[in-house]
Simulated scan of single mutants.
Amino acid sequence: MTINPGSAEAPPGTREQAEHNLRLFLAEVSDRGGELAAAPVRVPEGDALGRYAFDLPAAGSATVRVLMPGVPVEAIRDDLRASAPCIPLGSPTCCVALH
């Protein structure tokens, strides 16, 4: 089992910054051929680990929960340290970074 320190609680952030980060993330998903079946849905009760929860309705009826840090995108995308905040997809143990 590998534990990514970036999946620890994120530094304090804002919902507005998390929404901005989500737009950037979805643009990268789109650039790689991914598409959503509908607009992302904010799920406040899913907030965890200092991150803001969004459900992404994916094509084919699947829904993927993203826990987006509300910190400046550079802290997610440009910080290559293992302790940099990551973006849990579907579960807190499946993390990606905006690289």
Results as ranks from 00 to 15, higher is better:
L98H: 11
D55F: 13
E28G: 05
S30Y: 01
G90I: 14
A53C: 14
P40M: 07
H99R: 15
A38M: 07
I3C: 08
R42P: 10
V73M: 02
P69A: 11
P40A: 04
G34W: 05
I3D: 06
P69Y: 01
F25Y: 05
R23A: 01
F25C: 00
R51Q: 15
Q17P: 06
A8G: 05
R77Q: 12
P92G: 11
T2C: 06
D31Q: 09
R23P: 02
H20L: 05
R81N: 12
L67Y: 13
C94V: 15
I76G: 00
A38P: 03
D47E: 08
E19R: 00
L56M: 08
P85N: 14
R81S: 15
P92Q: 15
L22A: 00
V29K: 02
D47I: 08
V29H: 03
A58F: 14
R77G: 08
V96S: 09
A59I: 10
G13I: 01
L24T: 06
A75P: 01
E45Y: 12
A27N: 02
A48P: 07
V96F: 14
G60T: 13
P5D: 11
V43E: 12
A10T: 01
V64I: 14
L26I: 00
G60L: 12
R42K: 10
T63A: 08
R42V: 12
D55L: 11
R65T: 10
L24I: 03
G50S: 08
